[in-house]
Design a protein around this nucleic acid. Structure first.
Lengths: 128, 128
DNA sequence: CAACATTTCTACGCTTCGTAGAAATTCCAA
DNA sequence: TTGGAATTTCTACGAAGCGTAGAAATGTTG
């Protein structure tokens, strides 16, 4: 149960972008001023969703374990459970984990990594 | 459009396991003798699906680009387009690709890789 | 308390997937 | 060649996930 819908992904992107926990209302506004495909030009308004829609999505994300909600404060505040990088790395491990031939997969994987990334990997694997 | 359903995955696993292209009927039989969770014990028969069911799934997999079909032979024959390792590596790249902070993701990623895999990676990244 | 804000419940339409019957097509044996 | 058998295509249905949001319940504040 890992994949996200389009709106769910947009919400997560915004949560990952803003360090602080946000309310459903704030999230609604953020979504309105974001086309997703962030081009430099003036993005069209990206229509205003109903707050209940945003709440539904946030609840679903909470159920999926991606979002954490502060129930204490009155307008509840939501934030991502883990950073985008952590989440993505986790996803990669999930994908890799389902394979019986992990090493073969890794071989193919690094076969198509940019040189700068390869360098990063070398550094990270360097000593040990 | 990358994720697979349960049956779709079972079919792909069998296609990946058998080098040769197989017919829908063969696939039906293979599915019948496979519980997925391959424990050593006598797996229960894994019910016989209708051939049309198998054909539907194979067609859907073909549409997704995961399966290739030989239309020449009369009982059409189906096979995986790419190896499981290739496919999985591709999936990993897909996951990684959607991240703006690729290097950060990679850092987290190799942070939780087994030592033997780390060794494999070092070897593969060795020269260059 | 009353009006307002916030959250929860319920629901509907769309898409995907498991599942397969019905219909169309193709092939082989007599 | 023709008719039954095998094969493929078409169509469909139910369940689940997601976008979407109204209605109802609940909490807040003046």
């Amino acid at each position: 149960m890992a994949s996200l819908g389009e709106l769910e992904r947009a919400v997560m992107d915004l949560l990952w972008a803003s360090q602080e926990a946000v309310t459903a209302n704030t999230m609604r506004d953020l979504l309105a001023h974001n086309t997703g495909t962030d081009d430099g030009a003036a993005a069209h308004p990206g229509k205003e969703l109903a707050v209940t829609t945003v709440l539904t999505v946030l609840s679903r994300l909470e159920k999926k374990g991606l979002v954490e909600r502060e129930r204490g404060t009155r307008p509840h505040r939501y934030q991502a459970v883990s950073s985008r990088a952590d989440h993505t790395a986790e996803l990669m491990h999930e994908v890799l984990g389902s394979a019986p031939d992990r090493e073969a997969v890794l071989a193919r994987f690094i076969g198509s990594v940019t040189e700068s990334e390869a360098a990063t990997l070398r550094k990270l694997l360097g000593q040990s």
